[in-house]
Design a binder for these strands. Structure first.
Lengths: 334, 334
DNA sequence: CTGTTAGCGCTTTCAG
DNA sequence: CTGAAAGCGCTAACAG
């Protein structure tokens, strides 16, 4: 492999000059630049990025921590991040936290110790204090999918409350008054916020919150079924259920269908996240979009801008969800 | 940040000795080792991996090229790869090819030029010749999900023919004789092999291949619907369709349901890949498992073994698919 | 067992 | 505009 030294020899210029044309830094006469380019071409020269990193104290790599690599959620986000960063010729180094605080912390430390220039972190389990400390550390970090007080400017997140509100208002507008809610685990902020949106919508329509219509799940499909079973057990005349994510909605619907109920005729559902389901499932789920891809892109752009001095890109911290009306809510007004 | 030099100072030993205890290479007396460890601890020393890489000519990073980062397919594969490699303290650098030959090639070159110690490549569009050349290059490469003649020993793949055969035999065994096939694009090897399995099964049951019962799709959901429409158009009494992947099966089933047919009563289906569908879809799809996770793990282990001198791990090149019988095939024998 | 000494390939002052 | 030279932090012979 040719080195910068070979190039400088062939082009009859100094190392420094070659380095200058590689990095397009400082002034180099067109003629010299030309010579250097020719020499590089001829030798098939490729800068050794490791050496560059060592000398410049920059790794040109960005660490990304997600909780899961699989699932319909993080893939699209990763896709955007990778796409933006690679276009800028940066590495994307991934690590998975597997929804476990210890693994998440290890992953963060791994990425930091690897000399990542910046981190994009989707921390599901790590405590706020840890994140604040991390945010104050030397390595720039942007948090995705989470809003942490005190480091607001480094958070890219969606308006979960608004999402929960939109979902709930939709069923209320369609005349439902016995509206259940299957929540995510309440130690998670997004779950709390979505629930707050539900409560806000209820209040707006003058519907009291009924504990019998509430279940705290864990965002997994099965807990949707469990929650549904619990809501049904109350014996009260439930007509609709808002679920804090599509997975739980899926589980809840499955349970209803199993018990011979029709959806949405007997029970309406709204999900959350708008994960891609196969087209032939029926009914098609009304849900709330989660702009996860836009957030991924934004986080990557933030890194480009903060760390790699990229041109100005308007930065948005908070992304708005949108209600996606499909077929899983029946209209009681007609 | 403390350097190895600080540690050697504090511990009153030489740089070399510190390096030895870090890498656990060469002989160091317990007492010295102890001193060094204490010094490292005290300074919170973390080796600079960039410098390590430069000096040792190893980046400790493995490049992974997948065609898509999203979708139900590559996530689980990435998960295994990341998990194995991080446990060995190696970087995983990802790049996406987006099912495009040029992007795939660029991604490969990006990863190579980044000094990855090895590559795990899932190349969808790159030509065999390119892969062979790549395999002969300096950077060790393992190919996943593809069998390339001439570099068999570097390929981790599944037995697609057997998979196609299992799927087809299943419907034949259940008495179907008018069996359609919706194929993947035939320029792809896996699509050809799966089709060959179908043809083999037909032959075994003495059923002639009928071009009217064949459609070449592109592995996407929509082409499943298109293909189904075409098969139906022949007017012949089709009773079952084998699809080269679950996505197309999904599209095909959707079309049948839309047209008022019942599945599996009026039309049976077998898919391929066993991607996770929500539980409440009905009927549950009979399909063929794709041991993509096992293959990911195997590829990662191969890298550990070949490049990082890991302990011996039995290596399997070819993984067997399994038929997963669920509810989408009706039994005509009863 | 331990220390000395060259580099790895590149960036970056500092002069000229 | 260009060159010389000093490292970046670490590994790996080679002596001892």
């Amino acid at each position: 492999m040719a080195t910068i030294y070979d190039v400088s020899n062939l082009a009859r210029v100094s190392l420094a000059t070659v380095s200058r044309v590689i990095n397009d830094t400082g002034k180099v006469s067109d003629k010299t630049r030309q010579k250097v380019h020719e020499a590089m071409e001829q030798l098939g020269y490729r800068p050794n990025t490791i050496a560059q990193s060592l000398a410049s104290n920059r790794s040109n790599s960005v660490g990304v921590l997600v909780s899961q690599l699989d699932g319909p959620f993080y893939g699209p986000m990763m896709r955007e991040i990778e796409s933006v960063l690679r276009a800028a010729n940066k590495h994307v180094i991934i690590a998975a936290g597997h929804s476990d605080a210890i693994q998440e912390q290890e992953a963060v430390e791994f990425l930091v110790s690897r000399g990542c220039d910046a981190l994009i972190v989707d921390a599901e389990m790590l405590a706020n204090e840890y994140l604040v400390a991390l945010g104050k550390g030397k390595t720039p970090v942007v948090f995705i999918n989470r809003h942490v007080e005190g480091i607001d400017d480094r958070c890219v997140h969606m308006d979960n409350l608004q999402g929960g509100y939109l979902a709930s208002r939709h069923v209320l507008e369609r005349g439902h008054r016995q509206v259940g809610y299957i929540s995510g685990p309440l130690f998670k902020q997004d779950a709390r916020e979505r629930l707050a949106g539900y409560i806000q919508a209820l209040a707006e329509f003058g519907v009291p919150f009924d504990p019998d219509f509430f279940h705290e799940g864990d965002f997994l499909e099965e807990s949707g079924a469990d929650g549904m079973a619990k809501l049904l057990q109350s014996g009260k005349p439930l007509t609709a259920v808002v679920c804090a994510n599509d997975h739980m909605a899926s589980g809840a619907i499955a349970l209803c269908l199993e018990r011979g109920m029709r959806v949405p005729e007997d029970m309406s559902f709204v999900g959350f996240d708008n994960i891609p389901f196969p087209k032939y499932i029926s009914p098609k789920l009304t849900t709330v979009s989660n702009p996860i891809q836009a957030m991924g892109k934004m986080a990557a752009n933030w890194v480009l801008q903060q760390v790699y001095d990229a041109k100005d890109i308007p930065f948005a911290h908070r992304f708005a969800p949108e209600l996606i009306v499909r077929e899983s809510v029946t209209d009681l007004n007609v």
